[in-house]
């Protein structure tokens, strides 16, 4: 399958290793990955902060870049939720019916990374090995917008050597919320403190999620508190220690 990677603006700038992991894994699974350098951002930061008018050109830019893409994979559930929940509204807000039609046509080809593996490729075991104690944080958008449910957990359970430790209040927000963490920094910090406590209580070495935004937030506190808990995007875990068993499984798809 020819997969077009939308890396997202913050992964591009801050978490290139996540993008490399996505590329590495998808290639290992026998897929062709393309990267369209014209890509920038999904527009979520502007939209969610209320800069609706300013978000529209960014939405349009995304559509321009990916109009003809076969499959678009995005290692960020919140960016995917921006597209699924708000792109049509953005088009409607400026009365652009043509843009709305294009979004309609494009959305079925947009996948969050873990969703792509399980729902589109039908894989739960990607042949990864990661001998660490890991806990999984269900980001808000993965849980309540994309309804990923246990998709990421199923993927993690099939990783060799990975000890998946359950976390309390798995679905409660870490307090990031984009510009919320800045506009309401105190409340956000209090929410983060609760989430960090839950992470530390698991005894995990690594906290993972399908969104680096939450992980950046969590790691900001884990690092400040000088804990030894690290964070890693799920793609980085799934790309680790790959064997070739999965390729035959992928070949069946």
């Amino acid at each position: 399958m020819r997969v077009s990677l939308f890396i997202t603006c913050y992964n591009d700038s801050l978490f290139p290793e996540t993008g490399k992991a996505v590329v590495s894994l998808l290639e290992r699974l026998g897929h062709e990955v393309e990267f369209r350098p014209k890509q920038t951002c999904c527009g979520q930061m502007h939209w969610n902060t209320g800069y609706l008018r300013e978000a529209v050109p960014i939405v349009r830019h995304f559509v321009d870049v990916y109009r003809d893409a076969e499959t678009i994979v995005i290692p960020s559930s919140s960016c995917v939720s921006m597209m699924r929940d708000h792109y049509l509204k953005a088009a409607e807000s400026v009365g652009d019916a043509h843009l709305a039609d294009e979004i309609h046509a494009l959305l079925p080809r947009v996948f969050e990374f873990s969703e792509f593996l399980v729902k589109k490729l039908g894989l739960e075991d990607v042949g990864a090995s990661y001998p660490h104690k890991v806990t999984y944080h269900a980001s808000c958008h993965s849980e309540r917008s994309l309804h990923l449910g246990d998709i990421p957990i199923r993927l993690l359970k099939n990783v060799r050597g990975l000890d998946l430790l359950p976390i309390q209040n798995i679905e409660e927000c870490c307090g990031f919320g984009g510009t919320f963490a800045i506009k309401n920094a105190d409340v956000s910090s209090a929410m983060l403190a609760d989430k960090v406590r839950s992470v530390l209580n698991t005894g995990a070495e690594v906290c993972t999620a399908v969104d680096n935004s939450c992980l950046m937030h969590l790691y900001g506190s884990l690092h400040r508190q000088r804990t030894f808990v690290r964070t890693a995007h799920i793609a980085e875990i799934l790309a680790s220690g790959g064997d070739h068993a999965s390729q035959s499984e992928a070949g069946r798809q």
Partner: peptide, 20 residues
């Protein structure tokens, strides 16, 4: 570069990374 740049699985580096 142009908008369509891709690599295929066959010529990719066998990067078995352990990023964490």
């Amino acid at each position: 570069g142009p908008p369509h740049v891709s690599t295929s699985g066959s010529n990719a580096s066998p990067a078995a990374r352990q990023p964490a």
